[in-house]
Amino acid sequence: MDNQPIYHISQFPVLSTTRDQLADHLLERIVNHSKTVLFFANTNFIVKCRFVLKSLPDDKIVLVNDGIGMDIAAKLVLKSRFADNLNGTDFTPFLFDKAKVPLRVFLLGGRPEVTKRAAVHAEQVLGQNVVGFCDGYAGMRNTPDLVQKINAVKAQVVLVAMGNPMQEQWILDHRASLDANLLMGIGALFDFWSGHKKRAPAVVKRLRLEWLYRLYLEPRRLLRRYTWDILIFLRQCFKFR
């Protein structure tokens, strides 16, 4: 994206932009049949996905900041602030809402019952044209021609929900073979769309404490991410500043 600053956080070139500018850019690339990979770089991404650096620089791969940890790093290391806080959970429906016509969307990853309900939400609530979905368990194991299946339904957007770092690795491994214009790693988004997990109350989100709410709900799964991994993240930020 022209004239948008890039902040290097632990060697990762993270775009500083607003959700409006990012959505307009992605929708324009979809209309022009260009291909884009969008990764939401939070602290866990920085720690777990250093292999992504091997694919950079590449103007088809866009990294945007996700979460208060990235803001803290930008302030401490670069003395700067990101233009907006961007995360897949909020940005994806915003992108869909800005599209002038429904997008052809394929959902990949998640548990079978979760992905199926998420597909219904994307179609009935968000108004998109869900052309297919495949869960991240038996669905992927039993679909050896998955890329061909996605191409056959002419998906424009592929949402990959496998968590870091699996979703990023899958996207990088298959992006050349996929015809879709936009590939996004969106983490737990299907859990929220399906109602399997709850979003934090509005006041908690405004205070930028949704991470604490999620830790409260899933302490065993997320404790390391929000304690030890944060220390690793900060060490890497200062090491590669």
Rank of each mutant, 00 (worst) to 15 (best):
K98W: 07
N32H: 10
L63F: 11
K239I: 10
W228K: 10
V160E: 08
A41R: 01
D58K: 07
H25W: 13
L207S: 11
D191W: 09
S34F: 11
I232E: 02
V114P: 00
V125L: 11
Y7R: 05
I186D: 02
F94N: 04
P201Y: 09
P5V: 05
M70S: 00
I72F: 14
P93V: 11
T92V: 14
W170A: 01
V62N: 09
L108V: 08
W211T: 00
N181D: 05
N42M: 08
P219E: 03
S16W: 04
G127A: 05
F233M: 03
M162F: 13
K239A: 11
I171E: 07
W170K: 02
V64D: 03
I46D: 02
A23N: 08
P144K: 03
Q21Y: 05
R221G: 09
F94D: 06
L26C: 07
A119D: 04
I30A: 05
N32P: 12
A74Q: 00
Y7W: 04
I46C: 05
R104C: 06
I61W: 07
R214F: 04
Q124S: 15
K205N: 14
L223N: 14
K79S: 15
K60R: 13
D58F: 11
G132S: 02
V158H: 02
F106G: 02
H8L: 12
F96N: 02
A73D: 03
F12A: 03
L107G: 07
I186G: 00
A188N: 08
L126F: 06
G88C: 03
A74L: 04
C49A: 01
T115I: 10
D59N: 14
F94T: 09
G139Q: 02
T227W: 01
E210Q: 05
A83C: 13
N164T: 13
D58N: 14
D97M: 15
H33S: 15
H196V: 15
L172V: 03
V160P: 02
E113Y: 13
C237F: 06
F96W: 11
H121F: 13
L103G: 05
L53P: 08
L215Y: 06
K205E: 14
I72E: 08
Y226A: 00
I171N: 09
H8C: 12
L183E: 10
D145Y: 08
L234F: 15
T17K: 00
